[in-house]
Design a protein around this nucleic acid. Structure first.
Lengths: 204, 204
DNA sequence: TGGATTTGCTAAACACTGTTTAGTAAATTT
DNA sequence: AAATTTACTAAACAGTGTTTAGCAAATCCA
């Protein structure tokens, strides 16, 4: 009997429906305005229905986050594909920064907001972020193998690179760069200059 | 007549009262549980009273943030006071990281949360953060003057240093380091190792 | 086919949140 | 002593995430 299979499909379709609505709400109206009620409105169901498919808002946001990471990984594959490892490291940096600045709401959900991480067990690995991070790890590993950067520990290298990029982006997104007398384009220049300088500093 | 002066004092005292209660609530129960109602409860006034002294929650949090920065600057003066600039740069780094990891709620309010920055005009400078940042700037300037680091632009140097430190701390505070198979003490080691490595890389 | 049961969904409520309004009692001024 | 200003609050408004009770429609079993 294919009924239970169809129901399984329906269930997944409904979840997809909810995720899409949430994602749209999120990127077009901002997180503040993406309430369960409004998401429910968008898909023309009652708010309570969402709780039949998701235990709470955090669980839903975790799935939306997964969607965001799919986009980032796709962009990584497209725009950071140079064969030469150090060149690719630079591309990864640029792609990451561009993604963050062009999609602040997504970046927020992926790397800044508390919410979708609340449900994650302390020991559990963060599946959503893992694939994207592996891109960095692989690249850093190749750089080390070819003696292109001043790191010998992969994790340390990948973590440092990520840390620098995230620091710059998140300070900007959360409006903390106002300690300097800079307008928007100057800030952008500063971010890119910082990254270029950093790459220079770790280059062997 | 000293009456209006006393009233001015009373007004300031009340604001101090509110700030202290908010700060306590914030650091002891976390931001999520620091509602206007609970802060009002703590100082034994009605919630509406707080709105006689602050236009909204953001404005209050901005003052609490100021208090947090006072603490950071005090610690900077105490624990990052080496005369030798590059040594001091390392101390600033360590102090900053230690402060962030020991006071995640304060760090959140100072550098991650959207809230207290909402009221700030786009062109307005961020007074709260400025003094602390000037510590970094001064130190980086001295490092450049003595040709101790591979930077020639002060702002770029200070911004990069800050970006790296902030990136590592905020990824940790917001539970994003779960991409690596690490327990808490390993993460701490990774953060310190990243900073030590970074300092090594920018050292001339 | 027809009655029992399960499924999918929702209206309404609960317990919160930040914020505003209308009104009151006390302090101050005239 | 009367008028006015000040300091404060109870109650409401509009919103939030979430739960509960109940209702039709689809499905299952006789």
């Amino acid at each position: 009997m294919g009924i239970s299979e169809r129901k399984e499909r329906d269930k997944l379709e409904m979840r997809k429906n909810i995720i899409d609505a949430a994602m749209h709400m999120f990127t077009h109206e901002g997180y503040e305005n993406a309430s369960i009620r409004k998401i429910a409105d968008k898909i023309e169901y009652s708010p309570a229905t969402i709780y039949l498919y998701y235990k709470d808002k955090d669980e839903l946001l975790y799935d939306v986050q997964a969607e965001c990471f799919k986009k980032l990984v796709t962009i990584f594959k497209k725009d950071a594909s140079a064969a030469e490892p150090f060149t690719r490291l630079g591309q990864i940096f640029d792609t990451y920064v561009k993604f963050g600045l062009n999609n602040p709401e997504m970046y927020d959900l992926m790397f800044i907001m508390k919410s979708p991480m609340n449900n994650l067990d302390d020991k559990e690995i963060w599946k959503n972020g893992n694939e994207a991070f592996e891109h960095v790890v692989t690249c850093v590993q190749e750089c080390i193998d070819h003696q292109l950067i001043k790191f010998d520990n992969v994790w340390l290298g990948a973590f440092s690179v990520w840390g620098m990029a995230h620091g710059l982006i998140s300070l900007d997104i959360r409006c903390r760069i106002k300690v300097m007398h800079m307008d928007e384009s100057q800030i952008l220049d500063a971010i890119h200059a910082s990254i270029a300088t950093y790459l220079n500093h770790i280059k062997k």
